[in-house]
Nucleic acid binder design. Structure first.
Lengths: 195, 195
DNA sequence: CGTAGATTTCATCATATGGTGAATATTGCT
DNA sequence: AGCAATATTCACCATATGATGAAATCTACG
C-alpha cells in the first residue's frame, strides 16, 4: 500500500535489459559517447542508474553492446551489386540513404559517427565497419586500380553527406528528397566504380 | 626569494591571452568542445584556470574566440576559381587539402568538425562557414541548376574526406599523398561544377 | 511453503567540471 | 616616488559524473 515503490524487483517480466539498450542507443546517437550519461540513459529507460551498471558493467561495455549494427552487411552489399554496373553508384546512395532514413537503423550509425570524434574506441569501430562493410564486400570485386582508396573515397562522400544532412543539418541538403540525392550524387560516386 | 611563486602578476610582457587562445585551439581540436576542459586549456597554457575566465568569461565565449578562421575565404575562393573551368574540382581538392595539412590552420576546422557533433553552436558555425565560404563565393558564379545542392554535395565530400583522413584515420586514405587524392577526387568533384 | 537466485533500488564515494570573488604582485603613468 | 590599472593566482562552491556495495523485493523451483 505504499505509494512510492522502494527497492526490489518489480513485478511482471519486462525486458529491462532491452529497454536500457534502446535508451542507450538513443542517447548515444543524440549526444555521443561523452555527452551521454549513464544517469540519462537510466532515466530514459525508467530505471535506476545502478541497474545499468549491474547489467553492463561499465559505460564502455554498454556502448559496445549498444553498437550492434541492425542489419547484415552481406545483404546490403548484395543489393548494391545486383543490377547493371553503371547503376552501382546510384544503388549505393539509395541503399545508404534508406538505412539512414529509418531512425532505428540510423541510431547506431549516428552514435558511431558522433562518438568517433572524441572516443578512439568508437573511431576504431567506425573504421573497421567502413572496411568490412563497404570495401571488402562491394569494391573488392571491381576491377579497378587503387581499389581501397577508391572505396574509401566513396565512403567519405557518403559519410560526409550523412554528416551534413543529419548532424549539421545544412539546407537544402537536409530537406532534399532521397530521389533527388540519388540522382545527383549517384552518378558522381559511380566514377569511383568505373575504370 | 621564494622558490614557488604565489599569486600576482608575473614579470615580463608575455602574450598570455594569445597563449591561452592557442592552447584552446589545440585542446578543442583534439577533444572537441565538451571534452576540452577549461582546466586542461589553462594547464596547457601554463596558467591558472581562473585566468581563462578572467579573459574570456565563459567557456562558450572562449570557444567562439578560438574559432576565428585563419585565412580569408575570398582569397581561397579566388584561388579555386582562377584557371580553366575543367580543373576547378582538382583545385578545390588541392586547396582544401593544403589547409588541412597545416596543423595551425587545421586546428579550428578540426575543432569545429569535432564539436559540431555535440555542440549546436559549433554546428551552426560550421553550417554558416560552409555556406559563406564555399557556396556563396565559389559555386554562385557557376551556371548550373541546383547550385546550392551541388555545392553542399561537393562540401560533403571534402568534409567526409577530412573526417576519414584526420579523425577516423582509415588507411590507406590517411597516408595517401595530397597529389594522389587530388587526382583521384578532383575529377569526381568536378562533376558538381559541370552542367 | 521455503529458499536460492535474479532483479531492482538506495545511499554513498571520489573525482572532475564550470564558475566566482578576494587577494597579491607587476606595470605604466604622472 | 606614488598610485591606479592590469595581470595573475588562491580558495572555494555547486553540480554532475562513473562507479560500488548493501539491502529489498520478486520469480522459480523443489
Amino acid at each position: 500500500m505504499s505509494v512510492a515503490r522502494r527497492t526490489g524487483r518489480r513485478p511482471g517480466g519486462p525486458d529491462t535489459k532491452g529497454e536500457i539498450l534502446a535508451a542507450a542507443r538513443v542517447e548515444f546517437a543524440e549526444r555521443a559517447y561523452d555527452g551521454a550519461s549513464v544517469r540519462g540513459i537510466a532515466a530514459r529507460a525508467g530505471v535506476d542508474p545502478a541497474l545499468v551498471h549491474h547489467y553492463f558493467g561499465t559505460k564502455e561495455q554498454l556502448f559496445l553492446a549498444a553498437m550492434e549494427i541492425p542489419f547484415t552487411p552481406s545483404e546490403v552489399a548484395a543489393q548494391i551489386m545486383s543490377g547493371p554496373q553503371p547503376g552501382t553508384g546510384e544503388r549505393a546512395v539509395r541503399t545508404f540513404l534508406a538505412i539512414w532514413a529509418d531512425p532505428v537503423k540510423r541510431a547506431p550509425f549516428l552514435a558511431l559517427l558522433r562518438s568517433a570524434m572524441t572516443h578512439p574506441g568508437a573511431a576504431a569501430l567506425l573504421r573497421q565497419f567502413a572496411r568490412r562493410a563497404m570495401l571488402a564486400r562491394v569494391v573488392a570485386r571491381l576491377d579497378v586500380p587503387d581499389r581501397e582508396l577508391r572505396a574509401e573515397a566513396a565512403v567519405s562522400h557518403l559519410l560526409g553527406m550523412a554528416l551534413m544532412r543529419y548532424v549539421v543539418k545544412i539546407e537544402p541538403l537536409a530537406s532534399a528528397s532521397e530521389d533527388e540525392l540519388v540522382s545527383l550524387v549517384g552518378p558522381v560516386i559511380q566514377r569511383y566504380f568505373d575504370p
